[in-house]
Simulated scan of single mutants.
Amino acid sequence: MILLSLLASALLGQAAPTGCVQPDAAMLALPLQEFDQTPAGWRSLDAEGCEAVGAEAIARYREVNRDMLANEDIGTLIWHEGQLRAAAGQTDEAITLMLEGRNGESEATQPYVDATVAFLRRDREALLAARERLLDLPVPDYFAVAAERYRVNYPDLPPLVWPLNLDKVDGFIACFDRPYRDAYNCDPEGNAP
């Protein structure tokens, strides 16, 4: 607990844009699910202009909790940190993080990682090639059951469709010349985040 307090104090002492919520010791002590998937964790820090604060919170969380995290948990956190660094304009750091976790990803996720990295590198040809690999993925046997479970658990969210993340990749293509945050939220039909 003392270590958590010291780490939180150090994190709180870092300069951040005015108005950014700062993580505290309680946030860094949350169970993984709460830290990663609820507004009590890093998602509460993901305001426009404050992405670097959220990325640093994830990096600290990984450091503080490294003995309790499984490899797949670390991979998810690395991906989310990479996304926040991309949104913060820390492109090289984002690419490094995203590629660090790529080989641990499933075959269904690797083309999405490749598309994201291609977008960040401003490599349209590689982005389009990754999209084609994503489209070529066969629908796994378990997908219908997983999609139904998702629909039941998250009735207010759009349903899962195969291939996963195709909408994000299409947004990267439609808003290719825009910053990552805009392109990630880009509607391929309307081209507006």
Rank of each mutant, 00 (worst) to 15 (best):
P138S: 05
P158Q: 10
E148R: 14
A146Y: 08
N153F: 00
R149G: 03
V169P: 04
N165L: 10
R151L: 03
V169M: 04
D170K: 02
L160S: 09
P159S: 13
A144R: 08
G171S: 06
G171A: 06
A146M: 13
A146Q: 14
N165K: 12
V152P: 02
K168P: 00
R151M: 02
A146S: 11
D170C: 04
F172C: 04
Y150E: 14
A144S: 13
V161N: 13
E148Y: 11
W162L: 04
V169N: 03
A144G: 04
Y154L: 12
N153C: 00
W162V: 07
G171T: 06
L157I: 02
D156T: 13
A146E: 14
R151I: 00
R151P: 02
G171P: 04
P155Q: 06
P159W: 00
A147G: 11
D170F: 01
P158T: 08
D170Y: 05
P155W: 07
L164E: 07
D141P: 01
V161L: 14
V139S: 07
L160R: 13
V161W: 03
F143M: 06
V152F: 07
R149T: 13
V152M: 09
P140C: 01
D170I: 05
L157K: 15
P163G: 01
P140G: 06
P140V: 04
Y142K: 08
R149E: 14
P155A: 09
L166W: 05
P158M: 08
Y154E: 14
R149N: 12
A147H: 06
P158S: 06
